[in-house]
């Protein structure tokens, strides 16, 4: 199923510890390619923990796995996807415009999410 959501790249402790181990290592690649989505959104999209989804902005797309967000204090974050910064989120920052500030709009990427994908479907 396909839906439009907002991708918010962010930092996590795991992203921080794995980047110390090395950005070319699997642990870093894995955590920066794992999207956190609210359980109710996962349910609506028919997604289970570990399912692969495609995130697309225009003609650019990446395939990542998804997990339900774990939070203690409940919030209303329906429609938001969170994923640690890294090469995967960068690949979706297709607009380099900085509005004259030097800073691209990095935390508010409107993406099309499609999934669950069959295991054989390729990236992109």
């Amino acid at each position: 199923m396909t839906e439009t959501m907002i991708l918010v790249p962010m930092r996590t402790t795991k992203q921080g510890t794995t980047l110390n181990a090395g950005k070319l290592k699997d642990a870093y690649k894995e955590t920066t390619s794992t999207a956190e989505i609210k359980q109710e959104d996962m349910d609506r999209l028919g997604l289970k923990k570990g399912d692969r989804v495609r995130l697309r902005v225009g003609t650019h797309a990446v395939v990542v796995s998804c997990i339900p967000r774990k939070i203690k204090v409940t919030d209303n974050s329906s429609g938001l996807i969170f994923m640690p910064y890294g090469p995967t989120t960068s690949a979706l920052m297709v607009d380099g415009d900085t509005a004259g500030t030097g800073m691209p709009a990095s935390k508010h990427l409107v993406v099309e999410i499609e999934g669950p994908l069959a295991p054989e479907e390729d990236d992109g």
């Binding site: 950005k23 910064y85 890294g86 090469p87 960068s90 690949a91 920052m93 297709v94 607009d95 380099g96």
Partner: peptide, 11 residues
């Protein structure tokens, strides 16, 4: 490490 976190056109 800009290749890991810049916007796509910059990379």
């Amino acid at each position: 490490d800009p290749i890991a976190n810049f916007a796509r056109p910059a990379i």
